[in-house]
């Protein structure tokens, strides 16, 4: 069996999750605290990947990133980045595609904290950033973990977006889910089964961990 697609899948998932974690915290904290009128609009945009067929997202990204278009050619000329049919493109697409899986748990976690925690910190002269890092985030660890694990698992499982924007280039953009599709097309069921079984097990274990943790398992025996 060729391990490359699996390695690529997990590399993509790790990079995507790290980037998502960093960008989702400010988005989620803004969404959980703002009274701005554009909040519902932003919330909708963040959640779109939940309902939109991945191919739609992939299709538009393909158009946007294509060097034939304004944005794509600007990226190409000014930054030397070509996002279609490259690992970089897969990362950008995955980040957008998995955004709700990171933002929503963190936002829900932050909203569930009593607002007095934040206010108490403010009256002690602490900035929002200090409050976020020292008070808010440490008190929503289960939500952070949920966000990380769900984003990771979701990225592992994506197919449509990856296929549209990354194509099927071995070692570069051919992730496990696409490899399975390939093997089935080639009637090579045994190989498809190996990939599938590994993805299935990994995803199962990851999700199980989330439920065990948030169910208090780690609280009792870990920490």
């Amino acid at each position: 069996m060729d391990w490359q697609p699996l390695m690529l899948t997990f590399k993509l998932a790790v990079v995507t999750t790290v980037i998502l974690f960093v960008i989702s915290i400010p988005i989620a904290s803004w969404l959980s605290s703002t009274k701005s009128k554009i909040r519902p609009v932003l919330e909708t945009l963040v959640s779109m990947p939940l309902v939109l067929p991945p191919t739609v997202l992939g299709f538009y990204m393909l158009l946007a990133f294509s060097p034939e278009n304004a944005f794509g050619s600007w990226l190409d000329e000014w930054l030397g980045i070509r996002l279609i049919f490259s690992f970089g493109g897969l990362v950008v697409a995955s980040v957008i595609y998995s955004l709700p899986f990171m933002v929503q748990p963190i936002q829900a976690g932050l909203s569930s904290l009593p607002s007095t925690l934040k206010e108490a910190s403010f009256t002690m002269g602490k900035s929002y950033t200090t409050t976020l890092l020292k008070i808010l985030l440490p008190n929503i660890k289960p939500s952070l973990l949920t966000g990380i694990v769900l984003s990771f698992a979701h990225t592992v499982g994506e197919f449509g977006v990856v296929l549209m924007i990354g194509g099927n280039m071995p070692g570069k953009t051919k992730v496990a889910s696409i490899a399975i599709y390939d093997e089935v097309e080639a009637l090579n069921y045994a190989a498809a089964n190996s990939y599938s079984l590994i993805l299935f097990s990994v995803t199962f274990i990851i999700l199980l961990l989330v439920y065990l943790t948030n169910g208090g398992f780690f609280k009792r025996y870990g920490q």
Binding site: E119, A120, T123
Partner: peptide
Amino acid sequence: KPQQRKVGYVFQDYALF
């Protein structure tokens, strides 16, 4: 800002971290 006002505030729910 609240950070600049020299006020000690005890909340009804105590707001302990």
